[in-house]
Nucleic acid binder design. Sequence first.
DNA 1: CTGAAAGCGCTAACAG
DNA 2: CTGTTAGCGCTTTCAG
Lengths: 341, 341
Amino acid sequence: MDKKVTISDVARLADVSKATVSRVLNRPEIVAPEVQARIRQAMAELNYAPNRHARALSGVRTKTVGLLFFRDLWDLVLNPFWGMATSTVYEHLLANELDCNLIALGHSITSRERFTTPDRYRRFFATRNVDGFLVVGHMSTDQERYLTESELPAVIWGRPELPDSPLTYVDSDHRAGAALAVDHLASRGRRHIATITGDLALAPARDRLDGYTRAMAQAQLAQHQSLVAHGDFTRRSGADAMNWLLNRNNDLDAVFAANDEMAIGALEVLDQRGYSVPGQIAVVGFDNVALPQQRTQRLTTIGHDYNQIGAQLVAGLLDRMQGLPHQPSVISPVLIPGDTA
Amino acid sequence: MDKKVTISDVARLADVSKATVSRVLNRPEIVAPEVQARIRQAMAELNYAPNRHARALSGVRTKTVGLLFFRDLWDLVLNPFWGMATSTVYEHLLANELDCNLIALGHSITSRERFTTPDRYRRFFATRNVDGFLVVGHMSTDQERYLTESELPAVIWGRPELPDSPLTYVDSDHRAGAALAVDHLASRGRRHIATITGDLALAPARDRLDGYTRAMAQAQLAQHQSLVAHGDFTRRSGADAMNWLLNRNNDLDAVFAANDEMAIGALEVLDQRGYSVPGQIAVVGFDNVALPQQRTQRLTTIGHDYNQIGAQLVAGLLDRMQGLPHQPSVISPVLIPGDTA
DNA sequence: CTGAAAGCGCTAACAG
DNA sequence: CTGTTAGCGCTTTCAG
């Protein structure tokens, strides 16, 4: 019915020119109050809604940003961290009156088939027609390259992999976070602190391990191969790693897991095998994912400052969209006290 | 750099007219093979990517659908059901080469402020400029009305509330699902079957309760007020409800919770209070949310046919986008065997 | 402060 | 099969 009300219809009804209508849409202050009132009236009457494509075509910002989620959407279900991250970004986008185009680029069969050639990738980014991108999750160097080539402003949650990427970013200080965990444990008298690493192909996992190693050294605690178990950020792997640790250490008194999921897995094993937590073994996780309600015992963990990261991410993108520079920033995580350490 | 390659540039390079270039984009089969090759070559060389706004403006489908998520995005984190639902829809959209514009309309402060007036709502839907909408989550009757007024094709996961809404839908048969649960329990010899309802303001919760009631009657099992505890779909409420039930029934031998989250809450209480499951009390949930890895004991539950729902949703929308009618459909859930009943 | 006119990039008749 | 010619709805000079 009123699907096709255009600016001309409004102009006709209000007895002005299209240009004037357009003006009240964009710079209302420069049009005479009475005329403006008349026009607004007409718009309401006709139930007019501007066509964003036409708008975009004539060179105006869409105010739409592509939220590139470099994971399978299912990950939103499997690890709450991703849900936290995307939700946070989404909220901040909304708060800045930006529309969001969530684009998932995971490993699901269907989406994998879409990107067989570099060419397709390029096309993909260039063709989104958004004002900029926000990136969540880990992208390959190729993906990073193509995204860069699209020449659209983009800000990453995390860090670019390419040496001197023009892509800017906001990241948590993973190393400092891990150190926070170790220091906390050490200060509580723990001496035999093990760690369960994440997938070391990913930078955050490496950083967290590095932070652990350094903090252990700093605290002058003995380190040993058998104290470092390798996981891959999944709950299952956390459980396996915990078993592995228990089987080769009998004086273990603490574990720092590189994320909460693995920490939960570890807790389950400890529970099964009859260890008391934190009595015999203390556990600290990482991410501070929304698990408070999931167990009677609240996990002690290292928390990202989600809100600040989200805020800086979109502030940075807004800057870049206006051609301003954006300084990458690294945000300090904090210790979230709980019942497990 | 190549941000502004247009169809004319390609035309010039390939020494043809814009129209011909446009043709290879839309109906390649009607252009001479050699010319086509030349054009494609030129496109590659210039790294040409069509401008979707221009395209849309000249009356072509965007192939973009708005995925309206009528919940706060945080719900993706809190209850895996929403993650399952949106992921499923997303996958099917992708499989059909449709782009997805995820739009969350929850109760977060920021988005709430956006929709203070009916007018804003109308504008919101009309202004999306997508080819159609897919709806996940529960919308108010107002929202439903405005969406309808937008006159864009829309298909709902669930059911419209308005009497004879032109909005079409795909839904699980909640009543049948609940009956499945009760029948299963009854067939295993359970006689004192309680239920924990969801938020009865929502149709699915009412349907599941109704299904329970009918199946109980059918199985000639005694019903009683004290067997019906009210929850709100959260884990916490499931736990509370379980306590409530335990406190006023001493012969309880089974519980049907209206969703998995509440079932988990109930299991936690049973565990704490020292009941054996399913030895003393059997538990069945609803939704078959991806919790397999969450506990050693797998929850017996009623599962939606996610894939089929997703497929029909998208197929239905595609039909409606072409002006074809779409028959709403109701999909039967199935019993997912587990270790708790 | 307002109107007329040109053009954003693409598609769709209509002729050839 | 291909080129020409109009727009799609909106913004934006440039005059008035």
